[in-house]
Design a protein around this nucleic acid. Structure first.
Length: 115
DNA sequence: ATCGTGACGAACG
DNA sequence: CCGTTCGCCACGA
């Protein structure tokens, strides 16, 4: 119940969280791909918006850190502090970033189930 | 219903 | 490769 809603109806947020929860440990995906799985290839922004709305308690059960942008980098504009945390968590899970470019390897850690 | 906003993305130059 | 511009979408005021 990430957000209020009538029983049986889900907000876009909830759909996003649902997909994010399915991302396997040690893998990462992009906002855009999540949007695709939701049936809205153009809703990448909305996906990011949804993750931004995560509460402190929710982040405990939702692996938001496994969602990065199409450039394979950590996004997080607002809080550089959190972005550093995200990278750290991912490294703990086995997802590493190139120290120079700050990018990871989708070929190894990418999770893009076509649906 | 309309407007402003934003963890995006693809297209340009 | 880098910065800019434009398009898309859902949400809250």
């Amino acid at each position: 119940m990430a957000s209020k809603r009538k029983l049986g109806t889900k907000n876009f947020y909830d759909l996003v969280y649902d997909v994010v929860k399915k991302i396997p440990k040690g893998r990462v995906t992009t906002y855009g791909h999540i949007a695709i799985m939701l049936g809205n290839p153009r809703a990448a922004r909305a996906v990011g918006y949804a993750l931004n709305a995560l509460k402190k308690g929710s982040e405990n059960k939702i692996p938001w850190q496994r969602v990065i942008n199409a450039k394979a980098e950590i996004s997080f504009k607002g809080d550089p502090l959190r972005s550093g945390l995200q990278k750290k968590i991912l490294e703990t899970e086995g997802v590493f970033f190139d120290k120079k470019s700050g990018k990871t390897d989708f070929n190894k850690y990418g999770w893009f189930p076509i649906k």
